[in-house]
């Protein structure tokens, strides 16, 4: 049996209490929510925090709501709740697409949205999904609250802008007219992505007024494909341009070879998945706006 090293355990009773505990235990403490990344790492002794601060009782972080035309997803929202939320599904189907292929029901019942983003695993699906829809991260500390675009949230693999003493409390996504989707290639149900892509788009007068493309496990800076987005935005949503956007995304990402595949294959997947996911998003847009079907 894998057993972790010794650690101290504290249960937070409120956000303020959690922040106090984070201050007290400093940089060697870790927040535990669903624990589906941290606890395995501790059991393998890849992580040996001195203290765990359990935030599972902070119900105020476990809600999904709309405030001032913004979708607000608490950091402690479980994957399964994001998956089953009609509110989220109505505005951003990309999340249901992504959640359906994240791990398995057991993990989704416990794992949290905030935990996934803070883990910042390069293969994590929600990071790309939030990057695609240009979400914002709300980070709280004893000094107050700050908001960081998800596209600036990640510093590198397994690293975020959340500093010691800070807690990610909420993800926010402005609600607007849009369509979105997410596609993933995996070796087996529940496996981390070989590669995945998410897309969000809005059409106006037959041209793409807004395009968001998220990339997972492809080494894209901050999980998105800005060059491909720039290429698309302002032009029509045609098959040819989607294919070209895929090629651009493939050129600009930085996948690494591992047992999930060689680099050339992953670049090929980047092109294929970006192309395909844009088409899915376009189909959804057309379903919502039959009167102005995209050309």
């Amino acid at each position: 049996m894998q057993v972790p090293a010794q650690f101290r355990y504290e249960k937070a009773s409120s956000v303020e209490h959690a922040l106090t505990l984070l201050d007290r235990f400093g940089a060697e403490s870790r927040v535990v929510a669903g624990g589906h990344s941290l606890i395995p790492m501790m059991k393998l002794r890849l992580a040996q925090p001195e203290a765990l601060i359990d935030i599972n009782d902070l119900d105020e972080l476990a809600t999904i709501s709309v405030e001032q035309s913004t979708l607000c997803i608490g950091a402690l929202v479980r994957h399964t709740d994001l998956l089953s939320s009609a509110l989220v599904g109505e505005h951003f189907p990309i999340f249901a697409d992504a959640e359906r292929v994240i791990a398995d029901p057991v993990v989704r019942n416990r794992g949290t949205v905030g935990g996934s983003l803070c883990q910042a695993d390069p293969s994590e699906d929600l990071s790309a999904a939030f990057a695609a829809v240009r979400g914002e991260a709300v980070i709280q500390s004893a000094d107050g609250v700050r908001t960081v675009p998800v596209r600036e949230f990640f510093v590198g693999p397994y690293q975020t802008v959340v500093e010691p003493g800070e807690l990610l409390v909420q993800l926010r996504v402005p609600i607007r007219s849009s369509a979105s989707a997410y596609l993933k290639v995996e070796r087996r149900a529940g496996d981390w992505a070989v590669a995945a892509a998410g897309a969000e788009l809005r059409l106006a007068d037959g041209v793409l007024a807004e395009t968001g493309i998220g990339l997972t496990a492809l080494g894209a800076p901050n999980f998105h494909a800005s060059e491909a987005e720039d290429f698309l935005t302002g032009g029509p949503a045609t098959d040819e341009r989607f294919a070209e956007a895929g090629r651009i995304a493939a050129r600009h990402c930085n996948p690494i070879a591992d047992q999930r595949g060689p680099e050339a294959y992953k670049r090929h997947l980047a092109a294929t998945l970006v192309d395909r996911v844009l088409r899915v998003a376009r189909t959804r847009w057309n379903g919502l706006h039959p009167e102005e079907e995209a050309r």
Binding site: V185, R187, G261
Partner: peptide
């Protein structure tokens, strides 16, 4: 025959 092996 993983996806990578099939594609390759």
């Amino acid at each position: 025959l993983t996806p990578a092996a099939v594609w390759s």
